[in-house]
Design a binder for these strands. Structure first.
Length: 579
RNA sequence: GCGCCGUUGGUCCAGUGGUAGGACAUUGGCUUCCCAAGCCAAUAGCCCGGGUUCGAUUCCCGGACGGCGCACCA
């Protein structure tokens, strides 16, 4: 059985994840995390939060999943997530109509912007045929397919809304308030863990491509001219880089390991900020249990990156022979905030003070409206505006006795003394800038899946095959299982007492007294429980128990009183053999 | 979305035009002083709809779901 098939079987049987709504035939693209999976996912999210929110000093928010249409008009999703689909009546294949037109007509590069009707006309005019079977497509309608789930906000159909296709917009749209919260000072980072929705044409491969998924995103707002990441914190971190040139065959074609510092100096890393987060993320992947030998950072190819992304890398994990994207690291520049600023009319900017206030000379006017009014009638206001504009661009026009402005092809002469023209010195403390954004965007479901695939293994213990999940102790759904050797002579009562105490001390504890002891160990191995505590006859004599380690199957006897402290040490990384 | 293949207890599979069988798992009992052991018993299934047929889990059509390929993946 392939590793993906083996994991799918395990995931279903042991409650990690499974297709949703199976009682009703199932719904493609939706998965339910079972008890083990929900716990693992939560632990991974907490690890992410611990690093990207707490340790890096960022803030976290929680925004709605439904947003009004205007947000996606601004973000570009309404247009950009909309595909033009054209179906061939002959063979039934569907094609991107805009791509067909772009391929067939040399001077058209963005057919999508032309609209469906025009694209349909172009298909007919150029006699474009079906790439699959060659049949003429002239009679086929070009249809829109939007990857966003639409809904209505409020009764009726008055206010269209969409389920967000990425969590990021929930942060961007709140920027004006968030910058207030951040006391108008850059840089600051805002994180969010939440659901996003895409009505994928073809959901595939378990948790890899689904229609509802969890993202953990950080939007780090910076002043592109002044802010630098604390790169020294990560410059010695080694990162496996799969550069664009390696992918296109210019390089040696493989993954190269560099330190962040070296890769910034000599390439292929370009942006310090992206490099910083690549370096930071290594620790995260290691902590959650990604096998770093099956992991790489892949640089986007030139044609692959979004038009606003200056430097873009994906973190990819190898699963069943395929590389899947688990994180996108993008330098989004000021694209998102600028768009929301333009569309909303609100200031998506931060005031940046100059080091020293600057004194600038500025030509101003203060027209005497009691003259302009009677003289120019209803055009007076426009004349005044024209004077102000003229003062800004050509103060020499005000040197004579009269100044001439042109309005709708008509020239108007205005006596200079009525314009209130003056050159003033003004002090400017700073300017409004639109912050740039660095966005590490993690797909939580894909991380859960990668961690499970990488952790899943089999070995042989006492001639029996064993299936186990080598999860980091801190990620495991259950930290410790308490098992009595026998369910008699009071061993089980004693074990229940120990389990209760461990629970009171804050551990995720399982208690199991069914079947023989080996079976119970294997059960815990299979869901990744790192430690089993066994209560045996010696426990009754001297109050000691054994701790069994999942990975080595080795055991060590410790005092029941020390149990919580010992397990705490083990979870934080101490080895059982060194206790 | 298209094409090919598939869908049988919880899981993995066998099988059949006369409504099914195994393995593992699960539960209970016995046994057992540390790694899925053994014995006994129990629970539990033919994806959905329509058609053909005396009778369909089996054949045909459609749908849902899954795997792979193509397309798609701002």
């Amino acid at each position: 059985m392939s590793e993906t098939a083996a994991l799918a079987e395990l995931a279903k049987r042991r409650g990690f994840f499974f297709a949703s709504n199976e009682a009703y035939g199932g719904t493609a693209g939706f998965y339910t995390y079972g008890p083990e999976g929900a716990a693992l996912k939560r632990n991974i999210e907490d690890a992410w939060r611990d690093l990207f929110v707490r340790e890096l000093g960022n803030m976290e928010l929680e925004a709605p999943t439904v947003m009004p249409e205007a947000v996606f008009e601004a973000s570009g999703h309404l247009e950009g997530f909309d595909d033009m689909i054209l179906e061939c009546a002959e063979c039934g294949a569907t094609h991107r109509a805009d791509h067909l037109v772009e391929d067939a007509v040399p001077d058209i590069e963005d057919a999508e912007a032309l609209g469906t009707e025009r694209v349909a006309e172009l298909v007919a005019e150029h006699g474009i045929g079906c790439p699959s079977c060659g049949a003429a497509l002239a009679e086929e309608p070009v249809e829109e397919f939007n990857l966003m789930f639409g809904t209505n906000i409020g009764p009726g159909s008055g206010a269209p809304g969409y389920l967000r296709p990425e969590t990021a917009q929930g942060i961007f749209v709140e920027f004006p308030r968030l910058k207030e919260y951040a006391r108008n000072t850059l840089p600051f980072g805002v994180a969010q863990i939440g659901r996003a929705y895409r009505n994928e044409i073809s959901p595939r491969r378990a948790l890899v491509r689904v229609r509802e998924f969890t993202q953990a995103e950080l939007e780090h707002f910076i002043d592109p001219e002044r802010d630098r990441p604390p790169i020294e914190a990560v410059e010695d971190v080694e990162v496996p880089l799969y550069s664009a040139s390696a992918q296109t065959g210019d390089g040696d074609g493989g993954v190269e390991r560099h330190t962040v510092g070296a890769a910034l100096e000599a390439g292929p890393l370009e942006s310090e900020w992206v490099a910083y987060y690549l370096g930071r993320s290594v620790e995260f992947y290691e902590r959650i249990g990604i096998d770093m030998d099956r992991f790489r950072y892949r640089q986007h190819l030139a044609g692959e990156r979004a038009h606003y992304a200056a430097d873009c890398w994906d973190a990819e994990a190898e699963i069943g022979g395929n590389w899947i994207e688990v994180t996108g690291f993008a330098y989004r520049s000021d694209y998102d905030l600028s768009k929301h600023g333009e569309h909303s009319g609100e200031p998506f900017t931060v005031f940046r003070q100059y080091d020293e206030p600057r004194t600038v000379e500025r030509a101003v006017v203060d027209p005497d409206m009691s003259y302009l009014g009677p003289e120019f009638g209803e055009a007076a206001g426009e004349v005044a505006d024209a004077l102000e504009a003229l003062a800004g661009r050509d103060r020499s026009a005000f040197e004579g006795d009269s100044v001439t402005v042109e309005l709708d092809g008509e020239t108007h002469a205005v006596p200079v003394e009525t314009t209130g023209f003056a050159v003033e010195e003004q002090t400017e403390a700073g300017e409004h800038i639109t912050p740039h954004v660095i966005e590490p965007s993690f797909g939580v479901g894909r991380l859960v899946y990668s961690v499970l695939i990488h952790a899943h293994g089999t070995d042989t213990v006492d001639d029996e095959e064993r299936s186990f999940l080598e999860l980091p102790a801190a990620m495991a759904p259950t930290t410790v299982a308490v098992v009595p050797l026998m369910t008699k002579d009071g061993l089980d009562e004693r074990a229940e007492g120990i389990a209760a105490r461990l629970r009171a001390d804050g551990f995720e504890v399982a208690y199991d007294d069914t079947g023989n002891i080996g079976r119970r160990y294997r059960r815990q191995d299979e869901v990744g429980t790192p430690y089993c505590v066994t209560v045996d006859y010696e426990t009754l004599e001297d109050d000691t128990v054994t701790i069994r380690e999942r990975d080595s199957t080795e055991q060590k006897r410790v005092s029941a009183d020390d149990l919580s402290a010992v397990i705490r040490r083990l979870v934080s990384g101490d080895a059982l053999s060194e206790l």
